[in-house]
Design a protein around this nucleic acid. Structure first.
Lengths: 203, 203
DNA sequence: GCGCTTAAGTAGTCACTGTCAACAATGTAT
DNA sequence: ATACATTGTTGACAGTGACTACTTAAGCGC
């Protein structure tokens, strides 16, 4: 980054710098196996410096995952149309935003869902993860109130939505949704099926 | 396993032994970060011996993943009822078998879908993976022929099924399908929605 | 200004990993 | 028997996460 001699001894804001560097690297390489030392190297700092800010490698991972969930949630909210005409008009854009987030940031997305087993941090992580579930929940709740969705425990339906988009995202990241096997727009097809299963029969 | 002195110099069938040992360890520990040396140790063999049978750690991983896909496919076939009365009767058991496989063998399942980027082996791996997709495809094809499913490109529907069960499996493994947020039987709820989206309107 | 505490860096070490090359024991073809 | 290919073993290498001890800079009351 800069010469070692004119760089101040104290980085100033290394915590943030470490996080940003890690995010950059996650963004750049689809499959990067995370190493603390490489992050430190690239941040222009000694290999042990990050330990002053994170007790653990897992702690940094958990933090990154939390940021990822916040981004995801924000991008879902942004994709939600203000004046939806139908249930599908509301669900489809959000689902597309979800999958797009995953395929645009594959390394980060994978990290978010495999950080597992971080004892303490795991709790907070799950909270953040369930926040994206809540986005779906809210859409469906409104849809049910408007009468366009069957009266049925809504949590299961939201779980269906989450499972579907999460699964499609993962499969897409892994390159398993090849068009010649799966059609040209599998997500749209899947969403059609899902929405039609959600809707009330009378239309 | 046995004393070093009475064990013959040549193992006899080390390739298989390595695979079996690795599978055992995957089965035992939900989160095991795979190390070749530990496998070798446990197989009672020196740390470099496996390299005579696998060019690479990735090669062993790919082989394990392929075995996993074969198992999964077999367990799906076994779950398929011989004389299904309805589409749901055929889809639901298979979906349950799918998720059960994943939650019963979390480490293996995760490995199967994150082995990514193994150049050559990746091709064969994807073939095996798509074989489970074919199971769904066949069920739906028969359903459509019998007239219980809408006439629509069937690949997209199969992708919907795969995405759904894969996503639910992953979320379940990661402990994200907590009942208090998501209801008691999220998979059943999700399947109901999916099946109803698949079915023809006339019933 | 001056000395003090302390946060934020450094270097060095440890046990561990994947991988490779050199060597040894075993089986097999000639 | 003798040469050879196979399949083990040992020992080394660089790179990793984690930890420690040391050093440096910054901020503080006085």
């Amino acid at each position: 980054m800069q010469d070692a001699h004119n760089r101040p001894y104290h980085h100033g804001d290394l915590r943030r710098a470490v996080i940003e560097t890690a995010l950059d690297m996650l963004r750049e390489e689809k499959n990067w196996q995370f190493t603390l030392r490489e992050v430190a190297r690239r941040a222009g700092v000694s290999h042990a410096a990050p330990y002053k800010h994170f007790p653990d490698k897992a702690a940094l991972l958990a933090e990154l995952a939390m940021i990822g969930f916040d981004w995801l949630r924000a991008s879902l909210s942004a994709a939600k149309p203000k004046a939806p005409k139908s249930l599908r008009d509301e669900i489809a854009p959000v689902a597309h935003a979800y999958v797009a987030f995953g395929t645009d940031n594959p390394a980060l997305y994978r990290l978010m869902f495999s950080a597992g087993e971080e004892k303490a941090a795991g709790m907070h992580l799950n909270e953040r993860a369930l926040a994206v579930f809540d986005v779906a929940l809210e859409i469906l709740r409104r849809g049910q109130a408007a009468g366009s969705i069957r009266k049925r425990p809504i949590e299961g339906q939201a779980a269906a939505w989450w499972g579907l988009v999460h699964g499609m995202t993962m499969l897409a990241i892994e390159g398993l949704l090849v068009p010649e096997k799966v059609g040209s727009a599998p997500l749209d097809a899947a969403l059609s099926t899902l929405v039609e299963g959600l809707e009330t029969l009378a239309t």
